[in-house]
Design a binder for these strands. Structure first.
Lengths: 221, 221
DNA sequence: CTATCATTCAATCATTTCATTGAATGACGA
DNA sequence: TCGTCATTCAATGAAATGATTGAATGATAG
């Protein structure tokens, strides 16, 4: 069968991969796994989903060759199979961004600070950091920060923004980043900082993209 | 709702795109549309599918922002929305290629000529053509050839390979290409030419990729 | 060897997707 | 304005997918 009709068989294989990407929860799982390997249990906790459900979706991703599984003690650590997965995610996102007005509407509707929402590019950030002009904050939870973060970044989880900002120099610009280009946490961080009188912008994308670009990553001490 | 939970709403939008790519027929449709715009009727004929079915799938692709529709006389011409669609297709294919042993098995199982199946790269082909060392054949149907082909290529549809090869110099190497990197026709052309005593290789991918790389495309006279 | 416990499986029901048929739409061209 | 015809819609049944529950698995740690 696969021998008699290789064309259809190939499309079927490609479709399996695309179909595996075709579910909101699985995409969210991929974004989390892009921060680092996780056990089923840990991932389920991050997502606020029943363990069995997460397990099922992980199986689907595994069948499609999107994630790999490796036993570690009594846990099984799932991780993205390779970098091509992130590229595929990004490519799908690019189609959605360009075509679905919906995406733009969602982001704009959520954050009224429409002006100067223009994000900071990676090159720009590197220059700013080199010159010591900005404070870089990583608004992800501490465990994700510990698995790797941008050089010079300090960890200020979303819930601690307000406390942190009181001790910070209000005249100094802040750049915030989190899990990826559409990760909501950095949007919220920027909105919060601005309402507290700080000058703040987002990095255009997150940790996984930074790492995938071959830029240096710092690990927890 | 989308305002209250932008994260899920965004993932949902991305999932719509991926889901639209998650069907073998739709992927095949995308590959055909990558050759040029087509009416529903023409596309259905190419695919050997009922018109209504093709129409439905086109709607699905349109909803996801993957194809665009434009009326032309009494036909509606569907085309890929933009280049990002091809990138997404390629990215999904890359995941499948790297991870699904199945893909490799299908290709290898179909063509026993295992040795020297190494394809010709785009740069390599340009050098070979510049030096006049190879004959470049486009094995797609004439209508697709007419919509654009590689400079210097001659159109030899699959069914005419044998006739053509009798009039060709058997000592000269042939490079064949068709719709894309996994398009079966160029595999078959190479196999046929080899069994007829010619030296033949495939181009690593097809017309759409050539065009997307910004390389020159020739139109029918 | 055995108890533990992270993970997977199995079974269920609700929901969605898919192919197919034939009828309805609606823009073009005269 | 009207007929034509490419395209879409609507309705059907079959098949696949998704969430949830609780039980089964099976590797580890003691």
């Amino acid at each position: 069968m696969s021998i008699r009709n290789p064309k259809q068989a190939l499309y079927k294989q490609f479709a399996i991969v695309a179909k595996a990407l075709g579910h909101p929860l699985r995409l969210e799982m991929i974004e989390h796994l892009a921060q680092g390997a996780r056990s089923v249990e840990a991932l389920a906790a991050k997502l606020g989903q029943p363990i069995a459900n997460v397990s099922q979706h992980l199986q689907a991703l595994r069948r499609a060759g999107i994630v790999s599984a490796e036993r570690d003690g009594k846990f099984i650590r799932y991780a993205l199979a390779d970098e091509s997965v992130l590229s595929a995610f990004a490519a799908v996102r690019a189609v959605a961004e360009r075509r679905l007005a919906e995406v733009d509407r969602i982001v704009r509707g959520y954050f009224d600070a429409r002006d100067d929402m223009r994000p900071v590019g990676r090159d720009e950030l590197q220059a700013l950091m080199r010159d010591g002009l900005v404070t870089l904050i990583d608004v992800r939870p501490p465990d994700e920060f510990a698995l790797g973060h941008l050089p010079g970044a300090i960890n200020v989880p979303l819930g601690k923004i307000e406390v942190w900002s009181r001790g910070a120099d209000a005249g100094r610009e802040v750049v915030a980043y989190c899990r990826g280009p559409w990760c909501v946490m950095s949007f919220e961080a920027v909105a919060a900082l601005r309402s507290l009188g700080h000058s703040a912008r987002r990095l255009e994308d997150g940790m996984p993209e930074w790492k995938a670009a071959g830029l240096p990553v710092e690990m927890a001490a």
